[in-house]
Design a protein around this nucleic acid. Structure first.
Lengths: 245, 245
DNA sequence: CCTTGCGATGAATCCATAT
DNA sequence: GATATGGATTCATCGCAAG
């Protein structure tokens, strides 16, 4: 019995082909589109900025006032609502993001129709130092559910902060996540449930899911990465064949 | 020479009386107006909202914690832009928030004219359990600066995640922060600089600032808390009088 | 002084019931 | 229906006392 399926293609297109209420959890790490030139970093004197933004314009304009940012939010809401359709009622979603895109991610997940339930933190012990500033060493997991989310005592209590370092040897993609972290996160899915990752990359989500006894559906536009992922997942299912049937 | 000043009154009113470009850092923990999706959930007293009802709580109540989302965002932008005027160019700001208000806080800080530079994490080892869910055990420090922020090598490298537990004996307010945490955060301010906290509460920000050799201006609407804070700060300045002149 | 044990606590959340 | 109220839940960690 197959424990995983891999699709190659654009996430939105593939998602549309998947049936309603067919997966038990979404766990994904979309491309952040971060680091673009936005913000008033280079603004001259504080007084300019101050007089300019003094009172009006509550929410709308700044963090979304550049086209990339707005387009990113819109695109997220599209695939997120498609995922909602595919997810079973009460299924959880976990979406990785960096600090810059965190507010956009919490907006998008709610626009997509999910109930936002919190933020979990991946604390990376190794980070580039920045003298005189707080180091932005964390990544964030915005998580929620498809409607109400009954307690699941069998899952136990999941810590809200994971301190795991990045090992080069455990990284198959530029933004690859540690296996240990992905195992942890997979536990939010019910046992033997199906985890969907529309932006699979090298398949770390799938590795974590399979190792925790969950099944996996992965999507990636790149056939190169899809091959890498297939290889990694296959080596798990064949290694542990006696356990996973 | 006095190392601290305390004002009793509404933050917005007092802030308007403070001169331009007169403080070196803003470090504050405003009432989050969080704690529930519904208006009724926000209506209880903070002690009811934030503590379990089994045992009654001895800490004084605080008020100003019941705005709805829009009002909260608007109110934040008002005091944040007033703080910007009072802050020297390149002065840092650090604003505590919980997960629910984090996106609003990053919006508000930017609407107020500040440059948003990141999120630091206070990881609380103690958290309420939630079976089958990630525990929301962290609070967040949204931070930024008044315009460009030159590096300050003398400050060194400040970690972006800080794991400190709250000790009851070190907590004088329902939402009080550990002294160790506030000392650490105070280091974002230049040495001997002035730290301003418009929502002082029991004065933990001031305690941290004084202990790290910074000066302090605190504001609180409650004279009860102002008295508690004055006492705590006085005991520091008199104890370490030989050090702080 | 260190270890063990036990009671207390928490910037909540959920659900059923009442208005 | 929408809003308000009341009670149950849950366990890692802390504080303190006893050994």
């Amino acid at each position: 019995m197959t424990r995983f399926v891999i699709h190659v293609g654009e996430a939105l297109g593939i998602l549309r082909t998947l049936p309603d209420e067919s997966v038990d959890a979404i766990i994904t790490d979309p491309p952040y589109s971060s680091g673009g030139a936005f913000r008033s970093d280079r603004m001259g004197t504080p007084n300019q900025k101050y007089t300019q933004s003094r009172v009006k314009n509550l929410r709308p304009e700044f963090s979304g006032d550049n086209r990339d940012q707005r387009a990113f939010a819109y695109w997220c809401s599209l695939w997120l609502s498609e995922c909602l359709r595919i997810a079973k009622p009460s299924a959880p979603i976990v979406c990785f993001t960096d600090w810059r895109q965190l507010p956009t991610a919490t907006d998008a997940i709610q626009v997509g129709g999910w109930v936002w339930r919190g933020i979990a933190v991946w604390d990376k012990p190794i980070a580039r130092p920045a003298l005189g500033r707080f180091v932005n060493s964390a990544e964030y997991m915005v998580w929620g559910s498809n409607g109400p989310m009954p307690r699941r005592p069998e899952i136990g209590n999941l810590p809200g902060t994971y301190r795991v370092s990045q090992k080069q040897s455990d990284k198959f993609h530029v933004t690859g996540k540690p296996t240990e972290l992905m195992r942890y996160v997979s536990r939010i899915c019910r046992e033997d449930g199906v985890v969907l990752d529309p932006f699979m990359g090298s398949g770390s989500t799938g590795v974590g899911a399979l190792l925790e006894g969950r099944r996996f559906i992965g999507i990636d536009r790149s056939s190169v990465y899809a091959d890498i992922a297939r290889q990694r997942l296959q080596s798990i299912t064949s290694a542990g064949a006696e356990n996973v049937a």
